[in-house]
């Protein structure tokens, strides 16, 4: 378990070097990594390109290419993500009916559990565990938020020092 989170943390660091919000994610099936990615919101100008969404797309592509039924494929997926999935990603992972989600640190701004427990809207829903390597995940976020969002327009960038 920890090894997968460590890999997700590496991906998060990679995101940080690319000036993206440092969140990394790996999808596993039977303890084998089947997809891995990181946040790419700034690069794509698409605010929904979170690490989880990128992993989802790569699994869908894999399934399509190999004629695999993605619905049954996702059923066996365990997700390791450095930060608690946001409300959008939590909903996406529930729509796809993944088996389990393990996250690092909580997301008290828009977490799909902390802010609004999205699982209650879906039946069945996934198992959820938090607090695996939370400090490392949080340290990366803190490092990022010290800097500025490179994509924000001038007038919106860092209005108030926080």
């Amino acid at each position: 378990m920890v090894e997968f989170m460590k890999r997700a943390l590496e991906l998060a660091s990679e995101a940080l070097s690319a000036q993206e919000v440092p969140v990394g994610c790996v999808f596993t099936i039977n303890d084998t990594i089947v997809a891995e990615s990181r946040n790419s919101v700034n690069h794509t100008r698409n605010p929904t390109r979170h690490a989880e969404m990128n992993c989802i797309d790569s699994v869908l592509e894999h399934c399509k290419k190999n004629g695999i039924d993605h619905a049954s494929y996702f059923r066996n997926v365990v997700v390791y993500v450095t930060v608690e999935p946001c409300i959008m990603c939590a909903a996406a992972l529930n729509i796809l009916n993944v088996n389990e989600v393990v996250y690092g640190c909580a997301n008290d701004r828009f977490g799909g559990y902390t802010v609004l427990d999205v699982r209650k809207f879906y039946e069945p829903n996934y198992l959820l565990t938090g607090n695996l390597c939370a400090d490392e995940a949080m340290a990366l976020l803190k490092q990022f938020y010290k800097g500025a969002n490179p994509n924000a327009p001038e007038t919106k960038a860092k209005k108030k020092p926080s």
């Binding site: 929904t48 869908l60 729509i95």
Partner: peptide
């Protein structure tokens, strides 16, 4: 065809395309 491509998600990506992004 793609379980994530609800119209709003596609629209957001299309807007990204107007800003030299999109996936």
């Amino acid at each position: 065809d793609h379980p994530m491509q609800h119209s709003a998600m596609l629209a957001i990506d299309n807007v990204a395309k107007t800003q030299n992004g999109g996936v």
